[in-house]
């Protein structure tokens, strides 16, 4: 009951950001996806294919119609992660509500799990559901000439998880009691490194491995910082 009360409270605080992320991603991501449909058959890809000629191999590589949507998905996820991290871990500092929250008759891990659970739900519902919907829409051959691969679907979820990494980095920075010009931003710096290392992998396995290692590193420090921090 305590956990649910805390979870409801965190979700309610996250609600405006969830809605904003969902609306931005649906509107802009959907718009740029739909714009791909209006290009019709990408004849320029195959315009060099005439009999008796060497083929420009570049023309044989295709982006999925979700190409521009992917950029927006990544930006939205990371933006949502930063916003939620600030909301959950920086705002209580500014509004000085940490003592009130910590003194609830719930142990500290419960309070932390509620925040993390709220963050995970905040990513899955607004961003995840919209992503699934856009992906399903892009798989319609009557609308799009080039269909996305299943790998693109997984990559989209990877971007959503990168938003979670941004959230964890912001959380760790918020929980650090160091000064901003010393090591306070290390959490954010490390999250940035993990994000960069993940999106420039060419093997999905490696990308997920980097992501998992990053999440474990950040999460362990967040748990330690939250349990031992002074409020």
């Amino acid at each position: 009951m305590r956990f649910l009360a805390l979870l409801r409270k965190e979700l309610r605080e996250s609600l405006p950001w969830m809605l904003l992320a969902a609306i931005i991603f649906l509107a802009i991501g959907g718009f740029v996806l739909r714009a791909q449909a209006y290009l019709g058959q990408p004849s320029w890809y195959y315009s060099g294919l005439s009999p008796g000629t060497v083929v420009d191999t570049y023309r044989l590589t295709h982006f999925s119609p979700l190409r521009m949507t992917g950029s927006w998905l990544l930006v939205t996820s990371i933006g949502l992660g930063l916003a939620l991290g600030v909301r959950h871990f920086w705002m209580p500092l500014f509004t000085r509500t940490w003592p009130f929250l910590i003194h609830r008759s719930a142990n500290r891990p419960t309070i932390l799990w509620a925040k993390l659970a709220a963050a995970i739900i905040s990513f899955i519902i607004p961003v995840g559901v919209v992503w699934v919907a856009l992906y399903r829409y892009s798989c319609r051959p009557e609308i799009f000439e080039t269909l996305p691969t299943k790998r693109v679907f997984i990559e989209g979820w990877l971007f959503i998880l990168l938003g979670l990494v941004a959230y964890l980095g912001t959380a760790l920075a918020g929980l650090s009691s160091a000064r901003w010009y010393t090591t306070k931003i290390l959490g954010l710096a490390f999250a940035t490194i993990v994000i960069c290392m993940t999106i420039f992998q060419w093997r999905l396995g490696w990308a997920f491995a980097v992501l998992v290692v990053g999440v474990v590193v950040l999460l362990s420090q967040i748990i330690d910082a939250f349990l031992n921090r002074e409020f």
Binding site: R2, R8, R96, P99, F100, A106
Partner: peptide
């Protein structure tokens, strides 16, 4: 515990705050 400056969750109404607080008791 009554905190210094009476820092409460600003977005909650009194009824919501009561409901939140009640869950712990």
């Amino acid at each position: 515990y009554v905190t210094e400056g009476h820092r409460l969750f600003r977005w909650m109404s009194i009824a919501e705050l009561e409901k939140f607080q009640r869950s712990f008791f």
